[in-house]
Design a protein around this nucleic acid. Structure first.
Lengths: 190, 190
DNA sequence: ACACTATCAGACAGATCTGTCTAAAAATAG
DNA sequence: CTATTTTTAGACAGATCTGTCTGATAGTGT
């Protein structure tokens, strides 16, 4: 049982993830983070160039885990339609987790200026998601894949916002139902 | 031409509305607000009990104008279905306005703690909107009005988030189309 | 053993932010 | 006109926040 204590960097990332997500990037100061991490202040600036850098790392971690979650739900699926719907299953898992508070990128960006690390992280994820919808829509042979992707993106965003703002437990399920409707009623070439 | 200068209170509210919405409630300090308003600092605390009070007034103004906008688009309509769809027309007007940055309540709430004025303002508007969908859904005679209202709320939130986060100009139009689909395909008793 | 890296505790600087206070001037109401 | 309300400019207090610096200590690889 050689349970080594995680590095200061690791503990900082974990504390930042918890606090920044639960209370907000701007609300939480670095003093709170280092206290929660049980780390000296110097270690923060030794491992990160500043708060912005820590925020960027926090958002990168969220981005990675979100993509991983989607990939996990898509694993083994062949049909692009099923892969599209699996994105909603991945969302459902995230929403059901305790302490869900909506999209970390959207929240961080809500009070961030253009060009900030928050804005860049948001852009990166959003572009990836939109592209994912589009590529799978093309694979599925939709005549107007861009239109289908736009509708699915709309439903995805609706599910995120609705389940967060109204604590509506069925929002993701409803969104997936509507997504199925869209997918079934959109014209395909193949 | 007796154009009297608006009161300090009025100028504070206008400056707060611009700055808080564009840059964020937590990002903007009162010094910035009083500078933009061209008002002495003392006047802020004479007219409002503190920053929280100013934020509350800002959000109340947003709430009022949003409800007014919806009422304006519903004016003259008899059919509850048309009234439901008019909500999306009102949203379309808001989204098209220059400087649109998504839902002021959701943004303010993104980094606010439970119990804050931001959280309360969000709750007030969200409850009103959900109730509006539900009441009109009942008026329209839907068998499961709650389900229809939930779907419309989902589409509404999707349109808000999508048009903001992706600057997608067609999101509201798409949402209204899907809303029509939902309304046409849901069973009614009348 | 030695060099290097990581971490520690905490004081400190500098900026910023909310809110108070004062004392005078301007606007408004009766 | 007079009394009251509203607004002004700006200094100031107190809290908080990011970031720096120091000097000691622990851990690691060679």
């Amino acid at each position: 049982m050689v349970s080594t204590r995680p590095s200061a960097r690791q503990r900082l990332l974990e504390a930042a993830d918890r606090l920044f997500y639960a209370e907000g990037v701007h609300t939480v100061g670095i003093d709170k983070v280092i206290e929660e991490a049980g780390v000296a202040k110097g270690s923060l600036f030794y491992n990160f160039s500043g708060k912005d850098d820590l925020v960027a790392a926090y958002l990168e971690g969220r981005d990675q885990r979100r993509r991983d979650r989607i990939a996990r739900h898509q694993q083994g699926l062949k049909d692009p339609i099923e892969k599209l719907l699996a994105i909603f299953d991945a969302l459902n898992e995230a929403v059901a987790a305790p302490g869900y508070r909506g999209c970390a990128f959207a929240n961080a960006n809500a009070e961030a200026l253009p060009g900030s690390v928050e804005a860049k992280a948001l852009r990166t994820f959003r572009d990836w998601l939109a592209d994912t919808f589009l590529v799978l829509g093309k694979e599925a042979g939709f005549t107007d894949a861009a239109d289908v992707a736009a509708r699915l993106g709309l439903l995805y965003d609706g599910a995120v916002a609705n389940s967060h703002l109204d604590t509506h437990p069925d929002a993701v399920r409803l969104a997936k139902e509507l997504a199925s409707m869209v997918l079934n009623s959109s014209p395909r070439t193949t």
